[in-house]
């Protein structure tokens, strides 16, 4: 069972690595370094911290988009080339495909965060570089799993990418949206519509990643306990990742393929 999953993982990973991944990462790192240097020139004080945080955040969003596109493209190609039908004729369980894809996402995220770790270690220090690499890996892994769920369900790249980005931004902007909805209830003097919308959003918040699931760039400015911060993030990501994998399995087992 395991050897089949590993073979499938190798096959899928090779498919991703052939997409000029390294060139894209190098371009992104170059862009981050150049724009970070520009910001550093403008800052009167705290230039080093601002530059590091800017580079870290620039790479976070750049790599998140890259990882998402890679994963969505990979699964979409499997749909288009009728790969699933071929795989199901082999002695392979459906969960093995999900397991192999999870391994691919984990390895892809690792490949993406390694240059970031080196870069942040140079800008700041090794401890900070390691923190950011681990925290970013967890964030990208979570996003990758969301992307996997989206592409398995929606089967089309644009819809899957938009859906995943929407969930990602919704989770990241949940504080702002909650604030706006609370203001809207106040301004409408507690109208039923505003209250219902506020209730629906607060219910949605239960099934999207919590704010602790993401890397915190404030660490470049404040003295915080990095291990405790990572511990909180790890707990949230593990629980949410298992939840997403369960949904992926349910969705994938429900699909009917014409073998």
């Amino acid at each position: 069972m395991n050897s089949q999953t590993i073979s499938l993982f190798r096959f899928l990973m090779l498919g991703i690595l052939s997409k000029r991944l390294l060139v894209l990462v190098a371009v992104m790192v170059l862009g981050a370094v150049l724009s970070g240097s520009f910001i550093d020139e403008l800052a009167i004080i705290n230039g080093a911290a601002i530059q590091t945080a800017f580079v870290a955040d620039f790479l976070r969003y750049g790599l998140a988009l890259l990882a998402l596109l890679m994963i969505a493209t990979s699964v979409a190609e499997d749909y288009e080339s009728r790969q699933f039908e071929r795989l199901l004729t082999m002695p392979l369980a459906r969960w093995q495909y999900i397991a192999a894809q999870t391994l691919v996402i984990a390895c892809l995220c690792l490949l993406l965060v390694l240059p970031v770790m080196v870069l942040i270690s140079i800008y700041s220090n090794v401890a900070m570089g390691v923190y950011w690499a681990v925290a970013l890996w967890l964030e990208l892994f979570l996003l990758g799993l969301l992307g996997l769920l989206a592409i398995l369900s929606l089967e089309k790249i644009p819809q899957a990418v938009i859906f995943t980005l929407a969930i990602y931004l919704l989770a990241k902007l949940s504080g702002l949206i909650t604030l706006m909805l609370a203001e809207s209830v106040k301004l409408s003097e507690g109208s039923v519509t505003s209250r219902v919308i506020e209730f629906i959003f607060s219910a949605i918040l239960y099934v999207i990643p919590g704010t602790n699931s993401f890397a915190e760039s404030d660490v470049f400015f404040d003295h915080v306990d990095l291990v405790a911060l990572l511990g909180e993030q790890l707990l949230e990501v593990v629980v949410y990742a298992l939840f997403i994998l369960a949904v992926c399995l349910i969705d994938f087992y429900r699909k009917e393929f014409n073998i």
Binding site: A53, F54, L169, K172, L176, T211, F214, S217, D218
Partner: peptide, 9 residues
């Protein structure tokens, strides 16, 4: 809220 977790930056 707009900072998406990067308030300091």
């Amino acid at each position: 809220g707009m900072a998406m977790g990067s308030e300091q930056l």
